[in-house]
C-alpha cells in the first residue's frame, strides 16, 4: 500500500509537471522568438510594391476547353489518379460552367477558370493555427507545406473552395517538373500563381498555354501593364465581392 501511495504521488506530480511544461515551454519560446513571418530567402527578396493580378476574359473561353487546367496540373505535378481514385485529384485551377439562374435571358453557359484568388485579406491565413498559410511581401498567399498540420481549417474557411487536401501520395512517374516539389500527403495545397515562374520572371503556365489569350497576368500597380489597362474601365468582376476579402482574380465578360 505504501508503495502504491508513493507511485500514485509520483505519477501525479510527473503528470502535472509534464502538462505544465507542455504549455509553458513552447509559449515561452514563442515569446522570446524573433518576431515576423518565418520565411524563405525568396520571400524576403520579393518586391513589396507589386500587386499580382489575374484577369480572365471568359468571353474568349471555349466550352469544353481544359487547356489551362491541364497545363496547371502538368506544371505543378498535380497527380491524376486512375479509376475511382480520380475523385481525389487536386485541381489548383478548375474550369467551372456558369449559367444564369434567371429564365428569359441568354442562358449560354460560360466557362470560368477558378483558382486561388490571392486575397488581400485571406481568411485562410487568418485561421491557420501554425502560420503555414502566409502572405508574401508581394501579396502572394502561400502555404508552407512543411508547417501545415493538415487540420483542413483553411480548406473550410476559403470562400472560393480553391484549397485542396492532398489525399494521396503523388506517384513518382507523375513528378515530371522537378522545379516544383512533389505534393506532400496530408497537407493543404493550392494555386501559387506559379510562384516559381514569377520569381524567374516568367508568366504563370496557364496564362502562357491559353490558346485564346483569355488569361492575363501582371502587376496592376503598374499602369503600363495589360492587366492594369484591362481593369481600368471598371467592368471586371470579382467573385463574391460582398465578402470584401480583396480577391486579385477578376473576370471580364460575365
Amino acid at each position: 500500500m505504501g508503495n502504491d501511495r508513493l507511485d500514485r504521488r509520483t505519477f501525479l506530480k510527473m503528470g502535472g509537471l509534464i502538462a505544465a511544461a507542455g504549455v509553458t515551454i513552447p509559449a515561452a519560446s514563442q515569446i522570446f522568438a524573433p518576431s515576423g513571418l518565418a520565411s524563405s530567402g525568396k520571400e524576403l527578396s520579393a518586391a513589396t510594391d507589386v500587386s499580382w493580378t489575374m484577369v480572365a476574359d471568359v468571353s474568349k473561353c471555349s466550352p469544353d476547353c481544359t487547356i489551362c487546367e491541364d497545363a496547371c496540373a502538368d506544371e505543378n505535378n498535380l497527380p491524376r489518379f486512375p479509376g475511382k481514385l480520380s475523385r481525389f485529384d487536386p485541381y489548383w485551377l478548375r474550369i467551372i460552367e456558369a449559367k444564369k439562374e434567371l429564365s428569359g435571358v441568354d442562358n449560354k453557359a460560360l466557362s470560368l477558370p477558378v483558382m486561388c484568388m490571392m486575397c488581400d485579406k485571406p481568411p485562410c491565413t487568418h485561421v491557420c493555427p501554425t502560420k503555414a498559410s502566409f502572405i508574401r511581401p508581394d501579396g502572394l498567399v502561400m502555404i508552407d507545406e512543411h508547417r501545415c498540420i493538415g487540420c483542413r481549417y483553411c480548406v473550410i474557411a476559403c470562400p472560393y473552395r480553391v484549397r485542396f487536401m492532398i489525399f494521396k501520395d503523388t506517384p513518382d512517374d507523375q513528378w515530371t517538373n522537378r522545379k516544383v516539389p512533389k505534393l506532400m500527403r496530408g497537407v493543404a495545397s493550392k494555386c501559387t500563381f506559379c510562384v516559381h515562374r514569377i520569381d524567374d520572371g516568367k508568366l504563370p503556365r496557364c496564362v502562357v498555354d491559353c490558346p485564346e489569350n483569355a488569361l492575363t497576368f501582371g502587376d496592376r500597380n503598374d499602369p503600363e501593364t495589360e492587366v492594369a489597362q484591362l481593369l481600368e474601365p471598371g467592368t471586371a468582376q470579382a467573385l463574391r465581392p460582398n465578402l470584401r476579402v480583396g480577391p486579385n482574380v477578376f473576370y471580364l465578360g460575365l
Binding site: G22, V23, P26, A27, S29, Q30, A33, A38, H126, V127, C128, P129, T130, K131, A132, R147, C148, I149, G150, C151, R152, Y153, M165, I166, R185, G186, V187
Partner: peptide
C-alpha cells in the same frame, strides 16, 4: 490531422488570429 506527427507545431508557430491556434 493529415500530419499528427506535427503535434507541437501549433505551440511554436502561434497565430493569434486563429482560434484553433489559441485553443491549442
Amino acid at each position: 490531422w493529415g500530419r499528427p506527427d506535427r503535434i507541437l507545431l501549433p505551440f511554436y508557430n502561434i497565430n493569434p488570429r486563429s482560434m484553433l491556434s489559441l485553443n491549442a
